[in-house]
């Protein structure tokens, strides 16, 4: 993940506390999704940015997971993300990110 973004996320945790924060990802490829998820849970896997060795343990989701879809007004969801529904396997995303959320997902 971009180093500036790592720094910003760290600041946001300091400012708001981790309790109410949720990270929502939009990356297109599974590999990129995993890297981002790892960065905001157990730390930057590349050991390059401000989150290297920092375990924030933030709950992390992908915007195309079914659990999130149910919370968004369906017309808006269809307008913005209808195209993606054909391209992504929502269940696969949930399984992948569930692994980073531990029991919380």
């Amino acid at each position: 993940m971009d180093l500036e973004n790592q720094g910003t996320i760290k600041q946001l945790v300091d400012e708001h506390g981790a309790a109410d924060l949720v990270v929502v990802l939009g990356a297109g490829e599974l590999e990129a999704i995993k890297i981002a998820a790892e960065t905001v849970t157990s730390g930057d896997p590349a050991y390059a940015g401000p989150l290297a060795g920092v375990s924030l343990g933030l709950p992390v989701f992908h915007i195309l997971e079914a659990a999130l879809k149910d919370e968004v007004p369906s017309a808006l969801y269809e307008e913005k993300l209808g195209m993606y529904a054909m391209l992504y396997d929502s269940a696969e995303l949930s399984t992948t990110l569930g692994g980073f959320r531990g029991g919380a997902g």
């Binding site: 990356a27 297109g28 490829e29 590999e31 990129a32 890297i35 195209m83 993606y84 054909m86 391209l87």
Partner: peptide
């Protein structure tokens, strides 16, 4: 970890074609 950029873009293009009924969803 940056993915296959052209493939991601082509798949979005195909998804638009499928949404518009110009191709079958299975033909993406």
């Amino acid at each position: 970890g940056s993915g296959n950029v052209p493939r991601a873009n082509y798949r979005m293009l195909a998804a638009i074609a499928a949404m518009r009924g110009e191709i079958e969803r299975g033909d993406i």
